[in-house]
Design a binder for these strands. Sequence first.
DNA 1: CACGGTTACGTAATCGATTTCGTTGAGCGA
DNA 2: TCGCTCAACGAAATCGATTACGTAACCGTG
Lengths: 348, 348
Amino acid sequence: MASANSTAQRVTIRDVASVAGVSTATVSKVLNDRPDVGPEVRQRVLDTIARLGYRPNAVARGLRARHTDTIAILTDDLEGIFTNALMRGVEDAASAYDVSVLLANSYGDPDRERKHLRRLLDRQMDGLIIMSGNRVRPRSGPALPLPATPYVFLYEYAATEPVPSILPDDRGGAVLAAQHLLDIGRRRIGFINGPASWEATADRLDGLTATLAAAGAPLRPALIRHAASWSPQDGYALATELLDAPEPPDAIFGASDDLATGALAAIHERGLRIPEDVAVVGFDDRSLAVHQRPPLTTVALPLLEMGRVAGQRLLEAVNGGQQRHELIRVPCELRVRASTVGAGHTPR
Amino acid sequence: MASANSTAQRVTIRDVASVAGVSTATVSKVLNDRPDVGPEVRQRVLDTIARLGYRPNAVARGLRARHTDTIAILTDDLEGIFTNALMRGVEDAASAYDVSVLLANSYGDPDRERKHLRRLLDRQMDGLIIMSGNRVRPRSGPALPLPATPYVFLYEYAATEPVPSILPDDRGGAVLAAQHLLDIGRRRIGFINGPASWEATADRLDGLTATLAAAGAPLRPALIRHAASWSPQDGYALATELLDAPEPPDAIFGASDDLATGALAAIHERGLRIPEDVAVVGFDDRSLAVHQRPPLTTVALPLLEMGRVAGQRLLEAVNGGQQRHELIRVPCELRVRASTVGAGHTPR
DNA sequence: CACGGTTACGTAATCGATTTCGTTGAGCGA
DNA sequence: TCGCTCAACGAAATCGATTACGTAACCGTG
C-alpha cells in the first residue's frame, strides 16, 4: 500500500486540548471517565469534543494499551456451508464486547495459512478463532511459534492443544432424532451415515444405537449404510437399497439433510407415503430442509450458538481468564416437520 | 477489554538494534529495503532479526504510516445466501494486496450500522465495502459525516454516491438464458419472475423480452408471472398455473433457482418430461441447482468476481486512485445442465 | 499560622515503529 | 595537504493516544 488520499486532517486529541485550553492528559481523562477532572473543565472538554467532532484514534490507543479489541477468524473455507452461521455467532459475541472481527481465508493451503497467521499476530490480534486447526499445527514437523495470544478451535477438535475446542453434540443430536422416531412409533429404523472418515459419524451412530437399544428396539445392522459422500445422490442410492431389502425400514435417519433429501426422492419414487409408510429425519437443518416436500424433520446444528460460545470463551481468555484443554459440546435441537409428523399429528 | 495475558515480552525493533549494535533507524531501513545501509551491517541486522524471531508491530507501523492495510465489509446480513461468495471475492482481492478484511454485521439495524461505521473509522480502516448502503445514508435526515475513507457498494446500488456500485448484469444473464432456450428450439417460454420490488426483476424481464422479440418469438404476456417471494413454493404454484393454461409453455425460466426448483416439482407432478416436454432454467446457481433432478441449467451470479472487482476498485482508490459515481455490471455465466439439455444432446 | 492532605490539572515518558536531518569518515582531485 | 562529495549510519522528532508523577491551590486542624 502506498499513500492514502486523505482530505481534511483528522482532529486529534491535541486539537481538542488546545481549543479547550487544557492539556491532552486532561482530555484523555474525560475520555476515559477518570475521577480527577473538575466538573466545569470536563464539560468544556466534552463540548469541544462534540463541536470538533473528535474521535479517538483506535490505532494510537491500541499501541499504547497493547490490545486492539480485535479478534480474527482463521478459516480454510470461507464458502463452507456452515461458515456463515458460525461467523455470525462469533460476531455476535464479539459485538457484545465491542470487539471487531477480522477474517482470514486460507483455502486449506498451509502456506497461506501460515502467512495469514503471521500477519494476524503482527497485527496484534487479541485472540484467534481457528476453523482449520489441524493444518496450523501439523502433528509432525515444526509448528509455528506458539502465540502468547489466546485462541480457540471452532468446529474442529484439537486433541493436543491446551485450549477449548467447540463442537456440536453429535451424539446428543442423534439421540434426539432416535427418541423422536420411537415416540412416533417407529421400530425399524434405517440409518444412512456419512463417510466414516468424519468423526461425527461415529458419535451419531453411537447416539442412535444407544437410544434404540435402551428402548428395546435395537438398530439392525442390515439397516445401516455408510455413504461415500454427504450428497443427495448417495442418499438416494442407499435409501433405495434399504427400501428394496426384504424387511424395509419404517423410518430413515440420514446423517445430513442432503442424504435425507436423497432418501425422500427414493421413497417418493416407490410411491410410498411420507411419513405414513416411511418417516424421514435429517441432520444439519440447512435451509433446504424446510423447502423439501414434505418439509424435513431434522436435527439442527447449533452453529450460531457454537460461534457465540467460541467468541465468548475466547474473549474471557483475552480478559485474563485461564485456558485449558477442553472439549465443549453444544447441544443440537430437533426441528419437527412434516416428514415425520404429517399434518394433524401431534407427537407424544 | 481489560488487561491481556501476555507471557514473554515480544521482541521489538529496539531489541534487534541493541543486539545487532546499530540504531533502530538502521534496523528500520533494512526492514524497508532502503539503500543507505552497508552490506555487512544489513546482513548482521538480518541475522539478528532471524535469530530473535523479530516481527514488526503492525499497529505501531500503522500509527506512523497512517494506514492500516485493512479494509472492512459492512453488511446487513452476514448469513445471506450470497454473502459468503461475495466476501470470498473481496478477501481474494485484498489478499493480493496484502490487506486484511474486517467484518461488521448490522442485522439491518441502522443504529448498529452507525455504531459499526464509527468504530471502523476509529480503527482507521483504509477502505470500506458497503453491502447495506441504503441504510447507512438515508435519503432523508442527516447522514453520517462523509468519511475521507474510500468506499464502494457491493451488490447494492447507491444512486447518489460519488463511488462505484458493483452489481451483477441481470439483464445480460436473462439474455443468456433466453438465447439458450431459443437455441434448443423453444418458442413458448414461460417466465416466473421474482417480487417486483426487486430492481433485478425488471432487468431480467427486459433481457428476456428483448431477446425473444429479436428472435421473432416474443414473450407472451399470458406466460409471465410475478411471484410474491423467491421461494420454491411460489415457483411451484406459478408453474402449475402456467402448465394448466390452455397453451402451456415448452420452457420455464425461473428468476431464481428456488423458483425454478418449484417449477421442476410442478412439472414432475404432471408427468411431463424434463427437458423434452418442458425445459427449465434458473437463476443464481446456488449449490442446490446441481443437486436437482434433473440438474438445473441456470444463470450463475458472478459473486466471486463481483467481490473481487469491489475489492480491486476499492484498493485502487486506497492507493490514490480517483473515485466517481459508476455502475459496474459484472457479466453472468450460463451453466448448462440436464434440465435443458438431456443426456446426449449438444446445443447448437 | 504552619502543616498535612486532598483536589485538579499539567509535564513528560511511553507504546513501537518511520523518517528527516545531521554527522562522521573515507575517497578523490587539485 | 586541503577541501569537497558521497556513502553509511545515528539522534531525535513524530504518529496519537495513555499514565505515572509532580505541583499548585485550597481545605481544615491544632
